Amino acid sequence: MNNATAIRNGDPREAATAHTAHTPYLRSSFQARQITRSFLSTLSPRPSPEVTESVLLVVSELVTNALRHANGVTGFHLGAAHRTVTVEVEDSSSAFPRERLPGSFDEAENGGFGWPIVRHLANDLTVRPTRNNGKIIQARLPL
């Protein structure tokens, strides 16, 4: 983890301390939650227990999906600035997340339940392709 000065909108009067954590590979959602808990504990003021649980749930869902459906995590980044925490999970699959339709519980289908949770908790959610045919999912949550 490190601290850096971030200048939003190019205006030095809006400078704020930005906290970041980054790791290239994760082997489990447990490991991602540990990193996230540690990261959130460095913030001042500390996030409420409700915010902490929301961030941990988003991290867990995104990392689990990358591990289960996308051949693993190839990048994991956390950032915090201006009352927002950003979670980024990168994987090597070009397939975008999908959502199951309500009432669609065919046991032959695999997945689709966590994405609505992530969509509900995140204020801003983007999925963008990477140069190596993978993707980065970025979720921003209020602190």
Rank of each mutant, 00 (worst) to 15 (best):
N3E: 06
N3G: 08
A4P: 14
I7K: 08
R8Y: 11
R8M: 10
R8V: 15
N9R: 09
N9L: 15
G10P: 03
D11F: 08
D11K: 15
P12K: 12
P12Y: 05
R13Q: 13
E14F: 04
A16I: 15
A16H: 12
T17Y: 00
A18G: 13
A18D: 12
T23P: 09
T23Y: 11
Y25I: 03
Y25V: 05
S28F: 01
F30S: 09
Q31S: 01
Q34S: 10
T36M: 05
R37V: 03
S38E: 14
T42E: 14
P45G: 05
P45I: 06
T52A: 06
T52N: 13
V55A: 08
V55S: 00
L57H: 06
L57D: 09
V58Q: 04
N65H: 11
L67F: 01
V73C: 00
T74C: 00
T74L: 03
G75A: 07
H77I: 07
A80Y: 05
A81W: 14
A81S: 12
H82E: 11
R83W: 05
R83Y: 02
R83S: 15
T84L: 13
V85T: 00
T86E: 02
E88H: 01
V89S: 05
E90Y: 01
S92E: 12
R100Q: 05
R100P: 08
L101T: 05
G103S: 11
S104M: 14
E109L: 14
G111H: 04
G112P: 14
G114N: 10
W115R: 03
P116A: 06
P116F: 02
P116I: 10
V118S: 07
R119P: 02
R119V: 01
H120V: 11
N123R: 12
N123Q: 10
D124E: 15
R128M: 15
T130Y: 12
T130N: 09
R131E: 14
N133T: 09
N133A: 13
G134T: 00
K135D: 04
I137W: 00
I137D: 05
Q138A: 01
L141C: 04
P142W: 06
L143W: 07
